[in-house]
Nucleic acid binder design. Structure first.
Lengths: 191, 191
DNA sequence: TGCCAAACCTAGGAGCCCTAGGATAAAACC
DNA sequence: GGTTTTATCCTAGGGCTCCTAGGTTTGGCA
């Protein structure tokens, strides 16, 4: 009588990502997702253990998409070129997929993080961008943290309308890349 | 028979802030707050319109505390001294009051933001710190956005355990302040 | 002391998460 | 093609949350 929706863990996760992008990761809910499929809430539990599991799946999917975008952006580049390309890909991903970007901020089990190749790819790509500046440890690690903090903080503020001054946000972003590049080149290595 | 809890909007908001600090802003719930007072859920609705209203009240309270800390920290300082003091106060607040800090990230109605003196104090204080570096517009605004982004991103990452390398987080923070100071001093003002 | 405005209550509806166990469509096998 | 098996999807229901409506008690004040 009623045709089946043809659900599977992947399709559910994919739709969950779309829902998160449209309604926000916080509003990613089992009920809303079931409604989207025209299915009872309970039906989703055949494919997903519970809401937390669904959120983790979306986060891992987001990591894969983000890792793809970042690694593709910096391929064959170095120095400021790589930094600018990395930054552009980072911001573009956050703007194009606000829900997935929120998902990347989910606190994941350290074991999952260590085992997830996509998360590791993000690490190594970030590492490669900074490595071109030739900083010794611990400055290298500090520089990575600076970049992660600034990119994350900026996109976060932008996403929730934190910049209300008239200055164009994109131009601020470009100026900040310049400033970060300058900071990396002139990093003061303490003894 | 049963002694009254002596609730009032302020006491409710204060307790809500404590609960948010202990359990996280996301877990600030009407039920949990009522339990904390030993009172029925419905009783709180005499003092607070609804959950969203409670969250806004906590956010405004957080803005006041944060504004107090920031303005007190930079009083009488300028240049890098002011920057370092601002940064220390910012991070200390985020670490001491994780729930209130999360509350400051709540998306508020622009009218409320404009009308809230404490939020404006945070703006003017940040503005003053950057003003000492004498940057012309639009570099001044870009520099403010850099600082806000980096501080916000760093504390956010730290709060959810985003820095897992062995490098001490506090030392990274200090190095990043140095780097930001350098970036502000050497800001490249485009024509 | 008696009245009034709060403070606080019980009762109950709606939405969400999740479990248990049953029905049914699609695939696998004979 | 018919039968068995499997996985998909269902209904029923419990617990937690937010919130409303309307009643009861308390503490202060005339």
């Amino acid at each position: 009588m009623m045709a089946r929706a043809g659900l599977t863990a992947d399709r559910v996760t994919e739709a969950a990502g779309e829902l998160a992008d449209e309604a926000g990761f916080d509003n990613l809910t089992i009920s809303a997702l079931a409604r989207r499929f025209g299915v009872a809430d309970a039906s989703l539990y055949s494919h997903v253990r519970n809401l937390q599991d669904l959120r983790v799946r979306v986060a891992l999917r987001a990591a894969r998409i983000q890792a793809d975008a970042l690694t593709a952006a910096v391929a064959g580049k170095a120095g400021k070129d790589a930094l600018a390309a990395f930054a552009a890909a980072y911001r573009d991903f956050a703007l194009a997929h606000p829900g997935l970007y929120e998902a990347t901020q989910l606190r994941l089990d350290p074991e999952i993080v260590a085992a997830c190749a996509d998360v590791q790819r993000i690490f190594t790509t970030t590492n490669a961008v900074v490595a071109a500046y030739g900083l010794p440890e611990p400055a290298h690690t500090d520089a990575i943290r600076l970049l992660r903090s600034t990119f994350h903080g900026f996109t976060n503020l932008e996403a929730r309308g934190g910049f209300q001054a008239s200055r164009d946000v994109r131009q601020s972003w470009d100026a900040i890349i310049d400033a970060l590049d300058s900071a990396l080149r002139h990093w003061q290595v303490s003894p």
